[in-house]
Design a protein around this nucleic acid. Structure first.
Lengths: 110, 110
DNA sequence: AACTATTATCGTAATATTGCGATATTGAAA
DNA sequence: TTTCAATATCGCAATATTACGATAATAGTT
């Protein structure tokens, strides 16, 4: 089917999974790292930097914009992307909340 | 194409993305939460708990086992799954390393 | 040994994702 | 206004994912 049954999960589960999923592609990880390393909003040096076609990069940027982790502002004839720091930190804390749930030792698995 | 070009990314990027991706499905998030909340290694009460077919749950468990975040040990005629705490914490710290990269303010995005 | 419960695997259908060329669209510059 | 550079969108082909029924495999029970 290929169709995820979102109805049967909680909003939180769906939302958290959607965040993970959006980061679940090496190109998107690379894009984020590149933006961070440049310490500036880099536009499509990404096309040169990563070995992907312009259309493909644009698609990945769209996906990252969709979850809000980056913002794009028009800067002359190019577009300047940068991390939305507020959301960046929020995502991190949501992930940490997930990972910080107490895992009890049980004995069944050594 | 549907084929991710892993060759053009670093191992770290591919690995990190693979971890994110594995968690990028609400069923897998739900499974992990369920195992954690039960404070024990629950087998396929999951089939009753979540509304997914046994084959589907088994597939998701396999995916989680693949990245090592859970372990399954045979317990009589059923299988007992639990979180691999060591890997759990390692994944968390890898995620945090990613998110803790310094994001500088740049001025391009308000 | 035959039976039963639990889990894994196989095969398959439906849908999603990835990637790209081609083609808009947008804004600056000439 | 024509032209050019940078992005976005469209349409498509190839592959991946999700879900499930059917069936195998496994281990305990009778």
């Amino acid at each position: 089917m290929g169709l995820t049954k979102t109805e049967i999960f909680t909003d939180d589960q769906n939302k958290l999974a959607a965040l993970f999923k959006a980061l679940g592609h090496p190109a998107r990880v690379a894009i984020l790292q590149y933006i961070i390393n440049q310490k500036a909003c880099i536009c499509n040096d990404l096309v040169d930097e990563l070995g992907l076609a312009q259309a493909t990069i644009s698609q990945h940027l769209k996906e990252l914009k969709r979850i809000g982790v980056i913002q794009g502002t028009i800067e002359g004839k190019s577009v300047c992307y940068c991390i939305d720091e507020k959301l960046w930190k929020q995502i991190q804390s949501e992930f940490n909340a997930f990972f910080n749930q107490e895992v009890k030792v049980t004995g069944c698995c050594p």
